[in-house]
Design a protein around this nucleic acid. Structure first.
Lengths: 159, 159
DNA sequence: TATTGTTATACTCTATAACTATA
DNA sequence: TATAGTTATAGAGTATAACAATA
């Protein structure tokens, strides 16, 4: 006898603003709204890249390697704000999928340079198209000016 | 012979905008700047609440329970956007620290109502003071109008 | 001594799934 | 049959710490 399937709140859902409870100071805290907005955008990212086996960190890493051929893992890690071990795992992932190669750095025998393969280059272009389109839909309620202002304020806040 | 201590990039550091690499489309994507801004604010949160053994989720849960005495765990989970099992763990944490109590709900024998203790109430006030002050410092480069506009745009984006 | 890459390990957060008591 | 809470388990992502090779 099969048990009924019950769906839990899935991770890939935006955080709702629940009717009923008093949110107290929450709605005036940047931290809370930043988190809600970020998750909403994360949901959009996932929908846009469905089937591509990608995450924001993977996309960012591929994009950076594509724009900076020969870049070192450590620098990719710095851009992402993660430790070297994490950047290493990302490089392993890229190589295992045939999206990038490690080539010896001629100036420093300790280091590898990362280079996208043609497959990596076309994947990153496809992802970029989808993600830009996803962001366009998600921010459709914002005017072009508002979107630009939001970006400016976020960058200012990120310091 | 002791090995030299080497500091890895600590989690509690903002994501830097690295000099050198080409960021390509990254600086025009809301997702990327949202993440950088959110982490910067998370760092601020941690500095402001150092020693209080708190996380953003714990703070949010305490605040919501404080503002909504008798609220159910599931509703707290909905506000946070997490599954019931996670909300349950948060309630366990609150009780184990003497910050909240579960009391039987008279209208529904399946449910508990959550209530802050006096210790929980004073802690949440202390946290609120510190976090508001931390946000004030972090967003000092924004005018009051810019901060308000940022909040408005974030809420719009979060849907 | 410091840095690059690497590997192994541990921790945190969260979802998933199953279960119980009650609705 | 559905819902509130509970518990156990697993997975993703990341830091930490150590190490070899090179600077």
């Amino acid at each position: 006898m099969k048990r009924a399937i019950r769906r839990e709140p899935h991770a890939l859902l935006p955080i709702p603003h629940v009717e009923g409870p008093d949110y107290d100071a929450l709605d005036d805290l940047l931290g809370f709204s930043l988190r809600r907005a970020q998750i909403a955008m994360f949901v959009t990212f996932n929908e846009a890249t469905r089937g591509l086996d990608v995450t924001p960190a993977r996309f960012t890493a591929l994009l950076i390697v594509g724009a900076n051929p020969g870049i070192r893992q450590t620098v990719v890690g710095n851009v992402l704000g993660i430790a070297r071990s994490g950047a290493n795992a990302l490089a392993d992932w890229m190589e295992s999928r045939g999206l990038a190669e490690r080539r010896a750095d001629k100036r420093d025998a300790r280091a590898w340079g990362l280079y996208l393969t043609s497959r990596g280059l076309s994947l990153v272009e496809e992802m970029k198209r989808r993600i830009v389109e996803g962001e366009r839909k998600r921010s459709a309620s914002l005017t072009a000016g508002e979107r630009k202002e939001l970006l400016r304020l976020l960058r200012k806040l990120a310091g």
